[in-house]
């Protein structure tokens, strides 16, 4: 059984086909990078899988079931800038929101839920900021709070939309270590990612996307110059030249064969 099985998925806004004919299988226990140029539909793919778009066709199966929030199979980290961080609440409260699905309608969070939320907050290194207003946190700290909230969901499959955008190096390291821990526990993690240089270090499975799946599979097999060229279209030559240079400096030329 695969973690995610997508067949014939398409998304259209008015006349504009944003994603078409997506067929995708991701095995359980992979740390997956979703890579592609701007406008390739990376975030849209996640939202479509999570059934957040009305104008979507096709089938999605999560661990063999159709998507149902009551299963608590899915954890989600939306883009950080999707919310208003001036909202009057503190870090622990936001993490506690990750428990709401388990707590259910009409019930209040219990001491046990607070303990779990606190544990998740500590695991991202934010324990001392529990009572801090979220507006007073740095971008990296806010991203960690979002990650902690997803951890509090105790899901099997995690979707993360650009968790590394606008965060400091320490936060990026914390996040990637936590993602690797999740993978070690047999969870599946899908990350929308921008930085081509880190793909090889971070992900053991890669999905190359540009409106449709260009290629998908183990990173070392499919993260090739040819596939990247195809995914990035016209921008490729310039990008790849620059890319080779940087990779060479970091001693990772074998990244692109």
């Amino acid at each position: 059984m695969n973690a995610i099985e997508v067949s014939q998925l398409s998304v259209a806004y008015e006349d504009n086909l944003v994603l078409h004919d997506i067929n995708l299988s991701v095995p359980v226990g992979k740390l997956v990078g979703i890579i592609g140029p701007n406008g390739a539909g990376k975030s849209t793919l996640i939202k479509a899988i999570l059934n957040q778009l009305p104008n979507k066709t096709g089938d999605v199966e999560i661990l063999g079931h159709s998507l149902d929030p009551k299963n608590h199979l899915v954890g989600y980290v939306p883009q950080r800038n999707a919310v208003d961080w001036d909202f009057p609440t503190n870090a622990l409260d936001v993490v506690l929101m990750g428990r709401y699905g388990h707590i259910g309608l009409f019930n209040r969070p219990k001491a046990k839920d607070r303990e779990k939320a606190m544990k998740c907050l500590k695991s991202v290194g934010m324990g001392e900021f529990a009572n801090r207003s979220i507006g007073q946190l740095s971008g990296g700290q806010q991203q960690r709070v979002f990650l902690a909230r997803a951890l509090a969901q105790e899901a099997e499959i995690y979707f993360m939309d650009e968790p590394f955008v606008g965060v400091d190096a320490a936060t990026e390291l914390t996040i990637i270590n936590i993602l690797k821990e999740l993978k070690a526990k047999g969870k599946t993690v899908l990350v929308v990612h921008h930085d081509l240089q880190t793909v090889n270090d971070y992900f053991d499975w890669t999905v190359l996307l540009n409106k449709t799946i260009i290629s998908s599979g183990p990173t070392r097999k499919i993260f090739t110059k040819e596939n990247l060229q195809q995914a990035y279209g016209g921008k490729l030559f310039f990008m790849n030249e620059k890319h080779n240079e940087v990779l060479a400096e970091r001693g990772g030329l074998n990244a692109i064969r």
Binding site: K47, L50, Q52, P69, V74, Y76, P78, A82, V83, D84, F87, T89, V94, M97, R149
Partner: peptide, 8 residues
Amino acid sequence: FDPIFAMS
């Protein structure tokens, strides 16, 4: 606070 997450 976070309608996208709420929906998920």
